[in-house]
């Protein structure tokens, strides 16, 4: 076969291949509609109502960015080992990115850093350490400041010589811990006596403990830092008219809590824009997957009392448009 013929056959076969490629490629596939699998490991068993808002934000972002979101709970007794195992399992199952409310533990941190080298990790709300060379994306409100401002609001309502009870539980998670510390700092700075109470995780015993706490005559102000505890405190107060002078403060954003706030059962709450947190977590994970620059976002928060619930900004914070 002459050289010329060879060339001709080569060109023809190149054409053939190109033709096959053209006709079998769906034009839409050129755009690369890849679905990302993202796993969200959250604390607690079923997402509590407050978690729902974060989840809703995540779902909106999932729809917008073509993500399939899986929510995985850390189990009732959130322990560091449990979380580590969950992490490994999710990575094994082929997650493209991990969102996690991580327990503030070195082991978990190490695991997250290991995973972050391979797939994007986003810490939602709770952070596992604040090293300088932190490469893991962290989406959270300024929990310490929220704690401080809440503390300020509480101070305003304190009578002379009155003490404050701080319900300390769930502080394995940094957001709870920081808010706690924020309030405590303000209390300490003004020399307000503080009593720390551990509520434990069992619902029944907790209800009992709260009731006992409130029955104590010297109890005037109680501060809790997670929604289930806030609701339990509110319920206990509502059911017993004797408790009506006790003031309840805290952080948490459920409709029940807002109801209590409105009807004067709870006095002040600190709320961060959980919807944003959820949305941004997914969005930033996707952006990192696509290799895009991630901009810093400020998560809004607000300290709200009964009179401020329906202010425009607060409305939007407390009652997310879920679409």
């Amino acid at each position: 076969m002459t050289l010329k013929k060879k060339i001709i056959i080569l060109i023809l076969s190149a054409c053939g291949v190109a033709g096959i490629v053209i006709f079998s490629t769906n034009p839409q596939q050129i755009k690369g509609e890849e679905v990302y699998q993202i796993s969200y490991i959250h604390r607690g068993e079923i997402p509590e109502e407050s978690q729902q808002v974060i989840l809703q934000g995540m779902e909106q972002a999932s729809n917008a960015f073509n993500v399939e979101l899986t929510a995985v709970n850390s189990g009732n007794r959130a322990d560091a080992n449990g979380q580590k195992m969950l992490l490994e399992k999710e990575v094994e199952n082929g997650a493209d990115a991990i969102l996690i409310e991580g327990i503030d533990d070195d082991g978990v941190r190490a695991e997250l850093e290991k995973i972050n080298a391979v797939i994007p990790v986003v810490e939602v709300n709770s952070r596992t350490g604040d090293k300088e060379d932190n490469k893991i994306i962290q989406i959270h409100a300024d929990d310490y400041v929220i704690g401080q401002e809440l503390g300020e609001a509480i101070l305003k309502r304190l009578g002379p010589e009155e003490s404050v009870i701080l319900i300390k539980s769930g502080t394995e998670y940094s957001d709870v811990a920081e808010r706690y510390l924020g309030v405590k700092e303000i209390m300490d700075a003004s020399a307000v006596p503080v009593e720390e109470v551990d509520a434990g995780t069992d619902e029944v015993s907790r209800t009992l403990m709260f009731t006992n706490l409130m029955a104590n005559q010297s109890t005037r102000h109680i501060v809790a830092f997670s929604s289930p505890e806030m609701e339990a405190l509110g319920k206990a107060k509502q059911e017993n008219p004797d408790f009506k002078d006790i003031s309840i403060y805290g952080t948490g954003n459920t409709n029940q809590i807002i109801n209590y706030l409105e009807s004067g059962i709870i006095q002040v709450i600190g709320v961060s824009n959980d919807y944003s947190i959820g949305y941004l977590s997914v969005r930033n994970a996707v952006m990192k997957l696509n290799g895009e620059e991630i901009e810093k976002n400020q998560i809004k928060y607000s300290i709200i009392d009964a009179s401020q619930i329906y202010k425009k900004e607060n409305q939007r914070l407390l009652f997310p448009f879920v679409q």
Partner: peptide, 17 residues
């Protein structure tokens, strides 16, 4: 060269499908 092009072509098709 011809063989390489053929292989690439087949791989592409396989990849797409």
């Amino acid at each position: 060269a011809g063989l390489i092009i053929l292989i690439i072509g087949i791989m592409l098709c396989w990849g797409c499908s």
